[in-house]
Nucleic acid binder design. Structure first.
Lengths: 66, 66
DNA sequence: AGTTCATGCAATATATATTTTACATAATGT
DNA sequence: ACATTATGTAAAATATATATTGCATGAACT
């Protein structure tokens, strides 16, 4: 599923996909694919994204689907 | 780094590494390596582990290292 | 209309997570 | 002493995340 929360957090910080990619040390495509929900990033990358966007794992990557 | 929080959560539930592995659909070795901090699981696997142990991502995988 | 900017989206290549199999060890019970 | 149980660990094989390159598109601007 698409990660809309991550996209919103990025836009709140006025960052392009490419900006975020550069900060966390991956390519623009990787960020785009994660936001599009096309895969399944590593924990390390998730944490790097959270720190770059000033959020926690739960805030960006946790879904309350019982 | 070792994931001691995950190990504690597993033991609180009285599960062996193998039990947890079976619930989340990976091998015992994968669980052991994650607890040992020898790698870097995927987000999907982290979420499966959290749900199996009744915890959230922040509770098991977030480190407050400023 | 043309140009730049941000993003979407493929194909192939590379790095790495995960599996499989197997053996070692420490702890516990008989 | 022996067997069993839970875990650590390692090598090779496989699956998949990520990089790289390149092209397409829609929005905003001149």
């Amino acid at each position: 599923m698409k990660n809309i929360k991550m996209k919103i957090a990025r836009i709140e910080r006025d960052m392009k996909q490419e900006d975020l990619a550069q900060v966390v040390g991956v390519t623009r495509q990787t960020i785009g694919l994660i936001e599009a929900g096309k895969y399944n990033p590593s924990l390390k990358l998730c944490i790097a994204i959270c720190k770059a966007l000033g959020k926690t794992l739960d805030e960006l990557f946790w879904e309350e689907t019982p």
